[in-house]
Amino acid sequence: MRFWPKEPFWQGVAVLVMAFLLIVFGIPYLPPLLGIPSAPIPNSVVVQYMLTALVGVLLWVSDNQTRWQQFKQPFHAVMVEERKKPIRMILLVLLPALIGFIAYGRVKPSLDAPPSFRAIHPAPPSSITFQGRTIEITGLENPLRTRGSLDDHYEEGKSIYYENCLACHGDLLDGLGHYSHGFNPTPLSFQDVGTIAQLAESFVFWRIAKGGVGLPNEGGPWNSAMPAWEEFLTEDEIWAVTIFLYEQAGKTPRTWEEHAEGGEH
């Protein structure tokens, strides 16, 4: 502990610096330990955590009278001591300048892209019209799972995927195909635990069949480039590609029983 400062003020500063480093650089290392992809901490969360740390530091320094006096000492010194005059002057200019700068950032007119919200999983309709026929979505299971050979369906689904889906959703099913950079919003990643892994196959069927143009009005805007695949593929072909998606991404579809237990999502 040779480098640990003795004065409460500098101890408080050291705690805050360490908290900041831990939050910004330390926490992102945690998810990979559990096999989850990492992501940077959003600024608003950093601010919240830092405020919590600051409150903790203030509680600690004001906990007893001597420490509180020691803690206040550097503030007092900067304000009154003759040899600290340069620091005093610099702070008297810098602090107001910083406040002014922040205020400017707030009031400056800026032309940004409108925010685009995106509900990933809109509530599915109870039935859809598929190539002129009505298909009940509620309670629907993938008929190919109880018909014929699963390997054959996988192979068929694979061909369909590579002929049609690859350019956007990619070889790795991570939504980073060689066309993905051309689209905003970007294509979905099926490796993501938030996509097909938490959906029933009937939902996936509906989304593939109707595409971006077939998304319900409520909860929009969607602005999705996903084609309506009923114009390209048959019912069985869509079911086959669904089997391929789950198998290739190593995910299991939710069943209707789970769906009923889990409620709406």
């Binding site: 304000m79 602090l95 107001p96 406040i99 002014g100 700068f101 205020a103 009031v107």
Partner: peptide, 21 residues
């Protein structure tokens, strides 16, 4: 006119700082 608010914020903080010191 956009500069009014930041300037006011700057001056106010500066005066406050001087008073405290």
């Amino acid at each position: 006119t956009v500069l009014i608010t930041p300037l006011a914020a700057f001056l106010l903080t500066a005066v406050l700082g001087l008073v405290v010191v």
